[in-house]
Amino acid sequence: MLSVTNVSASYGRVPAISDICIEVGEGEAVGLLGANGAGKSSTLRAISGLIKLTAGSVTFGGINTKGMPPYKITELGIAHVPEGRQVFPELTVRENLEIGAYLPGPKAQRQRSLDRVFTIFPVLAKRQKQLAGTMSGGEQQMVAVGRGLMLMPRLLILDEPSLGLSPVMADLTFEKIHEIHTSGTAILLVEQNVSRALTLVDRAYVLEGGRVIMNGSSIELANNKQVQASYLGI
């Protein structure tokens, strides 16, 4: 469904990622792992059009996204939940979710999507009228993920959903992501918490210095000596 083929991208003259190849199939959960600055977020930004590719191509559902602005790529069915949550702080929880279903397709299903989000995150139903910026980090993460779901995406991209959350909140977030995946949405998950991520995804890519240095099933990677030494602290 998503094919990232030999993609390179840079910030000005500073190369961020080079020659990245990633595949995500329909309904699959795929991880993008690596240390800080390995190029994980840049890869996601290249997929959703927030940075321009200097080489390679991204296709989604058979459509090449070359030259498409981010808001057009979103229309294809990709919901990118950015790093650091980035809810709209001065919009209410409800408004944040409504904005998630801004496009005509999702808008037609807005009520149903809202019900679904409130089922997954019951706390959001109670806090609908609260300004999103006044919520705790974990709750803001729920708003951000919920807002992504409102798009009814075929692919949900999650950038460090556990970042800055308490262990309890992080556990809850991973549980919810698992729930969303089992309901049929494909997931591309970026995580620094490699051991947790590997319990959630089917396959993963390991990035280092802006390149994919390894990929395989979760079990393969969990048993890989290099992965264990570098990321799992074993």
Partner: peptide, 18 residues
């Protein structure tokens, strides 16, 4: 609402399809 969202975070508002 899209206008307010754009004012608060233009980049993320594009990810909403705005």
């Amino acid at each position: 609402k899209a206008m307010r969202a754009s004012a608060q975070n233009p980049e993320v508002s594009m990810l909403m399809g705005i």
